[in-house]
Amino acid sequence: MIICEDIHKHYPLGHGRKNVLNGVNFTIQKGQKVGLLGRNGAGKSTLIKLLGGVEFPSSGRIRRHMSLSWPLGFGGGFQGSLTGYDNARFIARIYGQDYDAIKDFVEDFTELGRQLKAPVKTYSSGMRARLAFALSLIIEFDCYLIDEVILVGDQDFQRKCYHELFEKRADRTLVIASHSPGTIQKYCNQALIIHDGLGRFYDDISEALAVYSAL
């Protein structure tokens, strides 16, 4: 279970501040697949970062009663100057995994071949997505925090992700940030719409999508 209580987040902006979230409350149960919907700049990525503990709320509390992945997107979590292998080694070390045991999976899942020996900063965004996904799947989190951009790979990659996340790990919790109704329809069974700094939780996806398209 993840419980968010009255989450506020503001960033400094010039001499004033920009309020992104103004008191968001919700609870995510184990196994739920939650779509985070919102327009550009509504605060989806901010909320994902707060959930993942990358940034801290300005006020309010987040209680995590399960293990959460780091936010999976194009950026973050990697060292651009290190190679794909070095990043895998680093992740294995900090999460207490045996590198030799995960190496094969990384090679297999990413299909990056020799490219894994090159610095991550030379990767295309699609290649980064593959690596990020592979590494997060190794750790076996209870809940995966996903930025939609990462799911927009080629057909083959999408199939793999679907297989690993929704078939092999059907019991896990997912939070997917997106502004595309299609993605939410396909992957989620609940939705949280963020608008004007407030969040509203919907148990019915089609209702949520109707509200969202009316925004």
């Binding site: 503990g53 990358v54 990697f78 060292q79 651009g80 900090i94």
Partner: peptide
């Protein structure tokens, strides 16, 4: 900064 994506750091 990018390493702060991992909560244990």
């Amino acid at each position: 900064g990018s390493l702060l994506y991992h909560r244990q750091i």
